[in-house]
């Protein structure tokens, strides 16, 4: 059964379990090879902000969907993504990952029916405690039963 609107609103502020992520040099090599970017060897590809939070959060995508009252079978879709960099990420650096859900909104479309847009922000903190980057993602959940 789909979440009620009050249950949906209660998601906001829920912390997302975090962990840590290290930009390993061999992974930097592999990622740059995948996305066809010259490897710097010092400055990591900025996509690592996304990779670090995706891998460094200690809840799976299925677990994250469950918090939102959904499963992968419901067909969740990525909506928006934002990366904000306070400084370049460096190869070999280790970051602490943490964040929370920051928005949850129910919408109704004539063609799409009822769907929820849930947003969450995750940040990367360096070993000195400084925020290096933050990412925002929104996920669109079709709510066919709502």
């Amino acid at each position: 059964m789909a979440m009620t609107e009050s249950e949906l609103a209660a998601i906001v502020g829920t912390p997302i379990p975090g962990g840590s992520y290290t930009v390993e040099p061999y992974v930097d090599w592999l990622l740059n090879d995948v996305v066809e970017s010259p490897r710097d060897g010092r400055v990591a590809h900025p996509l690592f902000a996304y990779v670090a939070v995706a891998v460094g959060k200690t809840v799976s995508w299925d677990g994250l969907f469950e918090i939102c009252g959904a499963t992968a079978d419901d067909g969740p879709m990525f909506g928006e993504h934002e990366t904000v960099l306070e400084r370049p990420l460096l190869v070999g650096e280790t970051f602490t990952v943490g964040g929370e859900f920051i928005s949850a909104e129910r919408k109704r479309g004539q063609r799409t029916g009822v769907f929820d847009i849930v947003g969450f922000r995750l940040s990367l903190t360096d070993v000195d405690g400084a925020t290096v980057a933050s990412t925002y993602n929104s996920i669109v959940f079709p709510r066919r039963g709502a």
Binding site: D40, H81, E82, T83, V84, L85
Partner: peptide
């Protein structure tokens, strides 16, 4: 270089 990127939203 990648070090010049400050942010991106898509």
């Amino acid at each position: 270089g990648h070090e010049h990127l400050r942010g991106i939203r898509v």
